[in-house]
């Protein structure tokens, strides 16, 4: 069973790490979770981001869900927001594409232009 004691340990570990590198969020990932996004597989897209964050131990990114964005024909849709840079919107996402974007864009900073459907605000 998972207990609150386990959480205390996680907290202590995370606090140590934050002391070393600061608690900054480098990048925000926003997964579109409107009705059409859900019907097109947005839940699996969200799940794959969470898996990758966990597996690669990415402690400086934040993932959130959001509603419809009016890009229904390109669902599932994901925004990557980094401070001081234009917002990148990826469309027609699949778990495989998520894995590629995590490696290329989030870890190595290279935009995967094949999957980009919009840029800027």
């Amino acid at each position: 069973m998972k207990t609150l004691t386990d959480l205390k340990k996680i907290r202590e570990k995370a606090q140590e790490e934050m002391k070393l590198r600061g608690g900054n969020v480098r990048m925000k990932i926003v997964v579109g979770m409107g009705t059409s996004g859900i019907a097109m597989g947005a839940r699996e897209v969200m799940k794959t981001f969470l898996e990758e964050i966990s597996a690669r131990n990415l402690t400086d990114v934040l993932v959130t869900q959001t509603g419809e964005k009016g890009l229904s024909s390109m669902e599932p849709v994901v925004d990557l927001i980094e401070e001081g840079k234009p917002k990148i919107t990826y469309g027609n996402m699949t778990p495989e594409r998520v894995k590629k974007i995590v490696v290329e864009h989030i870890v190595n900073g290279r935009i995967v232009s094949d999957y980009v459907v919009a840029t800027g605000n």
Partner: peptide
């Protein structure tokens, strides 16, 4: 219990 630690912290996701 987590205080300022975000839920996206890898070990928290797993928990």
């Amino acid at each position: 219990e987590l205080g300022e630690i975000p839920l996206t912290y890898p070990d928290v996701i797993e928990y």
